[in-house]
């Protein structure tokens, strides 16, 4: 019986050249690193986009000219709090995640 393996892929299934597909880190949800999440007060939001611009993880999505706000994708938000810090209207609050 073969020894049990820790391997994630068989030799024959590896892509030639040990490559990866573009943007495939999306499969890895970094959201569970988070201890606090950004909560936005849309009343105060002026749609300036600083949260979107300054997010190191690129988690904010532009909701468009009609909705006029940026929505964080909590699957990836690591909870660093840069958005809350840089928001000129202080309309983002970092709220502790319940454990």
């Amino acid at each position: 019986m073969p020894r049990e393996t820790d391997a994630i892929m068989k030799v024959k299934d590896l892509p030639p050249g040990f490559t990866a597909e573009p943007g495939s880190t999306l499969e890895f949800k970094t959201g569970d690193w988070r201890s606090a999440r950004p909560v936005l007060d849309r009343e105060k939001c002026i749609y300036c986009g600083f949260c979107y611009i300054y997010c190191p993880d690129g988690v904010y999505q532009d909701m468009g000219k009609d909705e006029k706000w940026f929505k964080p994708d909590l699957d990836y938000c690591k909870g660093c709090g840069v958005c809350a810090q840089e928001c000129p209207k202080k309309c983002i609050e970092m709220v502790l995640e319940e454990v």
């Binding site: 391997a7 030799v11 040990f18 490559t19």
Partner: peptide
């Protein structure tokens, strides 16, 4: 057709990557 080359292999894939080259 963008791909990424020269990736980091953790212990869970290094053995297989080396074997693939030898094969």
């Amino acid at each position: 057709k963008p791909i990424s080359m020269g990736l980091l292999a953790m212990p869970e894939s290094y053995t297989e990557a080396r074997k693939a080259t030898d094969d």
